[in-house]
Design a binder for these strands. Structure first.
Lengths: 227, 227
DNA sequence: CAACTATTCAATTGTTTTATTGAATATTTC
DNA sequence: GAAATATTCAATAAAACAATTGAATAGTTG
């Protein structure tokens, strides 16, 4: 290899590693995951994650330097969002790889399921069948703005905090399946607990919007429009 | 969010970040890319990359802790390889994301093309058409063991160092298309230079085996067996 | 325009990471 | 079994990073 080639390769891999650096901090990964669900301000992110505002801001700047996120200023707020859909897709890949390779991730996932008794999720495939038959109501329990940004077709939106208030409006004859931000979000599990406690037949899927997109794109099922 | 939930999430993201940490060092990324082409010993990797043996060994151990690579001992050598095909796929994703988001990567790619005059690659799609017609000979210029590990169907193997010796055996009536490890490997460019210098019509694709696999899987073209 | 809010900046701390060196281990070959 | 080879280990020094704090900025509301 020529010397020039070596320098070129070093520069190139230096760049790839910039993306890698963004992924090397747990806090930053959590921020990307949250932004993948929809745009959020710095202090929203600070409140959700429990990090200090300054700390969040700093992490967001790191992410911005690698062009994984972008922002708009809206009045007093700075609203960050992921730079591209492909960033969210990439995060799904990272999670899948982590689950495949790291036993510890698998262990943590089953551990939390034991705390939420009988919260075993149903398969996405199974949900599809049930929805075809119209036997099931799909419930998106994320905050409403995330639902508006994109959701699984056919789902209705009841954010988890409002679920108890809206219990009366739910059909009694249908089974309910809840979903939230994805496999590492527990809002859908909490929803199932609430629903089951008042005698409604309920379950959850562990997939979120991005995992669902990946699923339909890989299984060649007609990729319906996202409403 | 409950306190327990916060702890759980922190542990989970800590784990994801372990994979991220592996990707945060340029040298480690280069090692993964090389291993994605086929198993290699520590000192092979040391020689290819120009790093010290101890340094390579240390990086490989980091990769092993995150289960991205595995190894077998063969006599005096320790042969490392990627732990799963999905690791190679993930690297393709990372490269694609980097190229999309980082202008600097795009700049570096065009920069090197100016050094190798008229090395503009042809599209994979174009190659497929040409191969259907039988108008083209596809040449894999990587080391032979990497070819044996997996190659694009229909390709023949002539490692770049042996190309000049084997020039006589090449058909004169066919155009030749060369490929190597992927978009950041310059062996195929060197091959085209050699071929053109003696008047053979030649070009290259920038894709390697993994990029090719991704291509056929996403375009639903019959995914022929890899020979 | 003064008080307030959201965000960023700058400086500091303690921690991790990287590359390097030389020694230690394990396997093979003669 | 001694010499040679491939790899790992351990210790070090330099560099990069993460979280924290308090001050600075910029936009908003009364």
């Amino acid at each position: 290899m020529t010397n020039l080639e070596r320098i070129w390769k070093d520069q190139l891999y230096q760049e790839f590693a910039r993306i890698g650096k963004c992924l090397s901090s747990p806090k930053r990964l959590e921020l990307i995951d949250l932004l993948a669900q929809g745009p959020k301000s710095v202090d929203q992110l600070s409140k959700i994650t429990g990090m200090s505002v300054a700390n969040v801001s700093q992490h967001l700047q790191t992410l911005h330097e690698s062009r994984l996120v972008r922002f708009n200023k809206k009045g007093n707020y700075v609203i960050y969002e992921i730079a591209e859909r492909s960033v969210a897709d990439f995060m799904v890949s990272l999670h899948r790889l982590s689950e495949k390779q790291l036993v510890e991730v698998q262990r943590l996932k089953t551990e939390i399921l034991q705390h939420h008794a009988s919260m075993e999720p149903i398969a996405l495939e199974e949900l599809m069948v049930l929805m075809e038959k119209g036997e099931v109501l799909l419930l998106d329990v994320r905050p409403e703005d995330e639902y508006i940004m994109g959701h699984i077709p056919g789902a209705i939106s009841i954010p988890i905090e409002q679920l108890e208030k809206h219990l009366a409006t739910l059909p009694v004859n249908k089974e309910i399946v809840a979903y939230c931000r994805g496999p590492y979000c527990l809002m859908s599990a909490r929803a199932v607990e609430i629903l089951k406690s008042i005698g409604i037949k309920a379950s959850r899927i562990e997939e979120g919007v991005h995992e669902w997109k990946r699923y339909v794109e890989h299984s060649n099922i007609s990729p319906k429009e996202i409403l």
